[in-house]
Amino acid sequence: MRPLDPVRSIKAKLGVLVAVTVAVAAVLPLAGSRLGLDPLLTVPVTVAGALLLTQLLARGMTSPLREMTAAARTMATGDYSHRVTASSRDEVGELARAFNTMAADLEAVDRQRRDLVANVSHELRTPVTALRALLENLADGVVDPDPEQLRTALDQTERLSHLVSDLLDLSRVDAGLRALDAQPMEVRPFLEDAVREAALTGRPMHFAVAVEPSDLVVRADRARLHQLVANLLDNAARHSPAGGTVHVRAHSSEAGIVLEVSDEGPGIDPAERTAVFERFTTGTGAGQLDGGTGLGLAIARWVTDLHGGSIEVADTTTGCRIRACLPEHLPEGAPT
């Protein structure tokens, strides 16, 4: 029972508690006197009644504190599922609600940590297993060290290198690193350089760059922006059919500079368009066998957030189109 929950202040609750106790202590002796009861009996009954009522009201006031103590003990053992009843409106109720928020955040962090270990282990196991099998075959003389076998080993090594680079970027996100070396730069040469690097992967893919106006300039951190574009190009190339075309477009708008990368792949289900920017989320149809780690789009979102911009999966009739918007000016407080 928590009859004092509607009271919005702990001080008011204590006042009500004192007032009720005094009233009981005053009414019971008066009632006993009118009934002709012996005062030696009335006094202990009055004390017992006042203590019982005080215990009843005080127990409801302190029950969230007891629940928080019990929940904190379970959290110390790694169980973050317990929540506190936060129905009161006073300071204790506010504390209980803040405790529940903290418990939910800790539960989410713990779940992300477990998912990180599981997913990284899975991602590392695939190329390591392939490399081990290939090297064992080469060492045993089962296969000859021809260019094809060496290319397979190189591909798996590059996949490992790509995963380690993504994990390094992810650690920078978690560490809250926000240093920016923002400089004005021309968009077209920058995108053409990024496309040339993407073409070096050897995928049978065409890239088309369109910038409007052709002398469009953006003020951004070149290294960070390269992370954004490189991840978008890699994502588009992996999910496009062989011989397909990846379109890279940039134009100026009222919101700032808009960068779009679109492919001819299966696209992303509308229900998953927000989730694909979370870590280790690849979306329906984005398999693990093509080298995707599920970190590229999470890093792309980090870069746009760093510049005070936004990123989304835009509507399109075919394939997938990812749109990143960068403001004309960097957000206040961002170091340059």
Rank of each mutant, 00 (worst) to 15 (best):
L259P: 04
R279H: 14
L180Q: 10
V258Y: 07
V195N: 05
S240Q: 04
A96P: 07
A182P: 02
R97D: 05
D215I: 15
I311P: 04
L30S: 05
P270I: 06
V92F: 13
Y80A: 09
Y80N: 12
R59W: 14
R188Y: 12
G309Q: 07
G243V: 01
S310Q: 15
E312D: 15
A179L: 02
T69E: 12
V258A: 13
T129M: 15
P241S: 08
R114N: 08
Q156S: 10
V258D: 10
P270H: 07
D269F: 09
S33N: 07
S165Q: 15
S87N: 00
T245W: 00
H247A: 14
V84E: 08
V248F: 09
G309C: 04
A230T: 14
R279L: 15
F277V: 02
V22C: 05
L37S: 15
D269P: 09
D115A: 01
A182N: 01
I322T: 10
T317I: 13
L180R: 09
L216S: 06
L52W: 15
L131E: 14
V22M: 09
D105L: 13
N231E: 12
D166Y: 00
D140H: 04
H307G: 07
T245M: 06
L180N: 12
G292L: 00
R172P: 03
G36A: 06
W302P: 01
A58V: 15
D146I: 11
I257E: 04
L135W: 00
D174G: 10
P127G: 03
A242R: 10
R83D: 02
R151S: 11
A96R: 08
A220T: 01
D38K: 08
A108P: 08
A182M: 03
L134S: 14
A198Q: 07
A314E: 11
R178F: 01
G283P: 02
I268L: 11
D144T: 10
D193I: 10
R219N: 00
A25H: 06
V211K: 06
G176Y: 02
L53K: 07
A86W: 03
N119V: 05
E94W: 04
T157H: 15
T85W: 13
A71C: 05
L35T: 09
I10F: 12
M75T: 08
P6G: 08
F207M: 04
I10P: 04
E272P: 10
L30F: 01
H251G: 02
F280C: 04
L41C: 12
P204K: 02
L150P: 12
D181P: 00
A26F: 14
V27S: 09
E278V: 12
R273H: 06
V128M: 14
E254P: 01
A250Y: 11
D169V: 02
E272K: 13
D90L: 10
L150W: 09
V211E: 07
R219Q: 00
T69F: 05
L138I: 03
H226C: 05
V313I: 06
S33E: 03
R2F: 05
A103K: 02
L131G: 12
I10G: 11
L167I: 03
A334P: 11
R321C: 11
L135F: 00
T201Y: 13
M1W: 10
A70E: 12
G243S: 04
G93I: 04
R196C: 13
G292F: 00
D181A: 08
L225I: 11
V143E: 14
